[in-house]
Design a binder for these strands. Structure first.
Length: 306
DNA sequence: ACTATGTCCTGCGAGC
DNA sequence: TGCTCGCAGGACATAG
């Protein structure tokens, strides 16, 4: 399940391997779910565009494009089939795109392709003769011959195009303590739910929420507003440390996560609580407990976390 | 304004 | 062995 460290790993791999490349053509599967913009619109934006960089915002990958490098031949855009579901989401996407629009200084925003990997999504950078995996939903063919492929068995991932992409929530690694603490002071929801809320902090998911709470010594069900200043300080440090360490390890490979070269991450070997129900706590040997918070499997040490 | 819950989707492992 | 069933969860819709 890609969270901030996995998405950052993918971003780095993409940036290194496809920056400066031109997209010559695109292909989409006819499964409707992964596309928030209609495929023909995505194709129209991508085809002929040059990739000027790859950014990340929370769990979103933002592929920056220079348009008008080459005007796409009209009517030649490849696209998958349409469907009622796609048309409904199309109207919605247009409204969101308009709402998200933000003026750059020169007044001409460049287009962007946004990718969210969901639960099981992966981006590959491959040669064209590499075997096309089952559940491949999009292929961007590049001028060098390389391909960017979006693979997602469970189809919780999303791809769309926009300009001036903005999303709410704070980047946890760029947030100081006072701003961090202010997010939680008034909230009655369990601290774990608050950590998962992307409108507050963006990028923390189920694994890193559990791991951060363990390192901070805080029980997942504690009301966010009940945390003392010192506990919030521990949590702030723990979130940043866990995310930084996980990025350094190339992320955690639990479900179907692989980086753009198909390599798994290594951080799962350093999980203290996630996926360790019944096993001894590394700090005190008490058996790790598993409960459900916010509908998510939640792991903690009943002795070390209070 | 918050908070809680249901929904989507497929692969996999438990259980018989 | 081969089958069914339930679980896994990020983001969003909907209900309270």
């Amino acid at each position: 399940m890609p969270e901030l460290p996995e998405v950052e790993t993918v971003r780095r791999g993409l940036a290194q391997r496809v920056t400066g490349e031109q997209i010559t053509s695109v292909w989409f599967s006819n499964k409707p779910q992964p596309f928030k913009s209609p495929p023909h619109e995505i194709a129209q934006v991508l085809q002929g565009a040059r990739i000027s960089g790859v950014q990340r915002a929370g769990k979103h990958i933002v592929i920056e494009l220079d348009a008008d490098v080459l005007t796409p031949p009209s009517g030649s855009a490849a696209a998958g089939t349409s469907s009622p579901a796609l048309k409904r989401s199309a109207a919605k996407a247009v409204r969101k795109t308009t709402a998200a629009r933000a003026q750059r200084q020169d007044g001409a925003e460049h287009p962007q392709c946004i990718v969210h990997l969901g639960m099981t999504g992966a981006l590959q950078v491959t040669s064209p003769d590499a075997v096309i995996l089952k559940h491949t939903h999009a292929i961007l063919r590049l001028a060098s011959g390389k391909e960017i492929r979006f693979v997602d068995p469970r189809r919780f991932g999303r791809i769309w195009v926009t300009r001036g992409f903005q999303t709410v929530g704070l980047e946890p690694l760029n947030t100081g303590f006072d701003t961090f603490a202010a997010l939680f002071r008034q909230r009655k929801t369990p601290i774990k739910s608050a950590l998962l809320n992307q409108k507050l902090l963006r990028g923390v998911g189920n694994i890193y929420a559990d791991e951060s709470l363990f390192r901070a010594g805080i029980r997942p069900r504690r009301r966010a507003s009940s945390l003392a200043r010192q506990e919030l300080q521990h949590l702030h440090k723990a979130v940043q440390r866990v995310l930084r360490e996980a990025i350094a390890a190339g992320g955690s490979s639990i479900s179907d996560y692989f980086d753009v070269e198909g390599e798994p991450g290594l951080f799962q070997t350093r999980h203290r609580v996630y996926g360790r129900e019944g096993q001894p706590c590394f700090r005190c040997t008490t058996a790790i407990k598993r409960i459900v918070v916010a509908g998510r499997g939640t792991h903690y040490c009943p002795k070390c976390q209070r």
